[in-house]
Design a protein around this nucleic acid. Structure first.
Ligand code: NAD
Ligand code: NAD
Lengths: 219, 219
DNA sequence: GGACACTTGTGAACCCGTGCACAAAGTTGC
DNA sequence: GCAACTTTGTGCACGGGTTCACAAGTGTCC
C-alpha cells in the first residue's frame, strides 16, 4: 500500500517528539488522510491497535518497517550522473531509510572516475558486473529519455527487478519487474492546467512579457 | 486530466517522426494506456477525431496544449537551491514546455549572489518582491522538510496559487491553492515493498553485508 | 453509388478505493 | 465490579474511474 511510507514518516515524527501512543484520529491528521482509511490500512497488517487507547508508536513503526521491507538494506544503482543523478547521489535521505547507493554509472567516459558523494562513477560498460557483484536489486534511471529503454533492458537482463525512472519516456519491462515513473514536467503541466482554470489565464504571460520582466529584475 | 501531458508527449514524438495521423489504438500504445480510455479522455476536449481515420497529430497536439495551458508561458520560482534545486534549475526540459524559471531563492546568505543556470540566486527575503515583480504563479519547494510549511505559507501569501513540493513534509494550504507532492523516498519504499514480496527478501542485505561488498568493489 | 473495412464516440457494466457509521473491545473512575 | 467513555475494526453503501462492446460515421475500392 502506497500510504504506508507516509504513516511511517508521521510515526517517526511523533517518536522524535517523545509520543508513546497515538489514536488513529491523531495519526491520520499528521499523515493528512482520513482516520477510517488509516484504520483500514493498518488492519491489513494485523490488529496492532488497542481499543480505547490507540496504537503504540514504536511498535507500529517497527511493524510498518517490516511490512515495507525496511528492516533490510537495499542496494541501489543510479544510472546517468548528470544534473539529477548528482542530486540523487548526494541526497542523504535515502541512506537513512535503508537504501544504500551502491554504484553510480554513466556512459560518458569523461564522467567515469569522477568522485560523487564519496563514490567513484563507473562506466556504463561495468553495469552488469556491478549489479551482480553488489547484489543490486533496485535501479534508478536518470539518463536522457532516448537511453531509458536500453538502460532498463540492461538492468532487467542483469537481474534488477525494480526500477525508478526519471526520464520522460514510456518504458516497457517484462512481467515481474516493477517500474515506477517520476515525471516532473507532467507535474508542472498538471499545475498549469488547474492554474489556467482558476485565474482565467490572468497570470499567464507571453514569452516576450516574461523575458521583459526578467530583464528588468535580473539586470 | 493527468494523462493529457502523457498524450502530448507521445504526439510530439510522433510528430517528430513525421506521422500525420494516428488511430486511438496506436496513440494509446505509445502512451501506455488503454485505447478506450484515451478516446474517452479526448472526447472531453471535443470531437477532434475522424471516424475511419483517427486523429490529426498536429491539430490534436495544439488542442491539448491549449487545454493544459501550454500556449502561454508560466513563471516559476524555485525555493531552496541545494542539491535538488540546482538540478531543477539546470534542467532544460521545463523551459521547452513553457515553464520559465524566473527566479531562484535560498535562505543561505552564502548562496545569494551565486549564479546558477544563468540566473542569480536571490536571498529568501526577496521572495515576495520577486513573486510580484515577475508575476510568478507557480512555486517549486526544494528546501529541507522543516522549512516547507513556512515557505509555502509565504508563497501563498505573496500570490502563488500552485506549488510543487519536493520536501517530505505534510504541508497544509488554503482552499484554492494547488499543492502537488513529489516524494522520492516513498517511491523507493514502494519498490522495496514489492521487491520483498517477490524474492522472499533473497536479495536484501544487512548493512554489514552491503558495506563489505562495497569495500570489495569500490576499493 | 454501394458494399466493405476501419475507427471514433459513448452507453453500460464492472471494479476498487473511500468514508460513514456502528458494534465490539478495552480503559478509567468510583 | 459496574457504568460511562474512548477508540478500534469492519460491514456497507456510494462514487468515480476503467474497460468492454457496439452503433454510428467516414474513407476506399470497385
Ligand atoms: N534535472 C532535472 O531536474 C530533471 C527534471 C525532470 C526530468 N529530468 C529527466 O531526468 C533525466 C536526467 O536529467 P539530467 O538533467 O540529469 O540530464 P543530464 O544530461 O544532465 O544527465 C544525463 C546523464 O546521463 C548520461 N547517459 C546518457 N546515456 C547514458 C547511458 N546509455 N547509460 C548511462 N548513462 C548515460 C549522460 O552522460 C549524462 O551524464 C532526463 O531524462 C531528464 O529529462 C531531469
Ligand atoms: N536531493 C535529492 O535528490 C532529494 C531527493 C528526495 C527528496 N529531496 C528533498 O528535497 C529537499 C531538498 O533537498 P536537497 O538535497 O536539495 O537539500 P539541500 O540541503 O542540499 O538544499 C536545501 C536548500 O534549501 C535552503 N533553505 C533552507 N531553508 C530555507 C528557507 N526557509 N527558504 C529558502 N531556502 C531555504 C538551504 O540553504 C539549502 O540550500 C529536501 O527536503 C529533501 O528531503 C531531495
Amino acid at each position: 500500500m502506497a500510504r504506508l511510507p507516509l504513516y511511517l514518516r508521521a510515526l517517526t515524527g511523533l517518536a522524535e517528539r517523545g509520543v508513546a501512543t497515538v489514536s488513529s484520529e491523531e495519526l491520520a491528521a499528521s499523515a493528512g488522510v482520513n482516520s477510517a482509511k488509516l484504520r483500514k490500512d493498518l488492519s491489513y497488517l494485523g490488529s496492532y491497535g488497542t481499543r480505547g487507547v490507540g496504537y503504540e508508536v514504536d511498535f507500529l513503526r517497527h511493524q510498518i518497517s517490516r511490512e515495507i521491507g525496511l528492516t533490510q538494506d537495499w542496494s541501489v544503482v543510479i544510472v546517468g550522473i548528470g544534473n539529477l543523478g548528482h542530486a540523487l547521489a548526494n541526497y542523504g535521505g535515502f541512506a537513512s531509510r535503508g537504501f544504500r547507493i551502491a554504484a553510480l554509472v554513466d556512459a560518458d567516459p569523461k564522467r567515469a572516475g569522477e568522485e560523487v558523494a564519496g563514490l567513484q562513477v563507473r562506466h556504463a560498460d561495468e553495469l552488469e558486473d556491478l549489479i551482480q557483484q553488489l547484489r543490486i536489486s533496485i535501479g534508478v534511471v536518470a539518463t536522457p529519455a532516448r537511453a531509458a529503454q536500453t538502460v532498463c533492458d540492461r538492468l532487467v537482463a542483469a537481474g534488477v527487478t525494480s526500477i525508478l525512472n526519471f526520464a520522460p519516456a514510456i518504458v516497457q519491462v517484462r512481467d515481474g519487474v516493477d517500474l515506477r515513473k517520476v515525471d516532473l514536467s507532467t507535474e508542472l503541466q498538471i499545475l498549469a492546467y488547474h492554474e489556467q482554470r482558476k485565474n482565467g489565464a490572468a497570470l499567464a504571460l507571453t514569452a516576450e512579457q516574461a523575458a521583459e520582466l526578467a530583464e528588468a529584475v535580473n539586470g
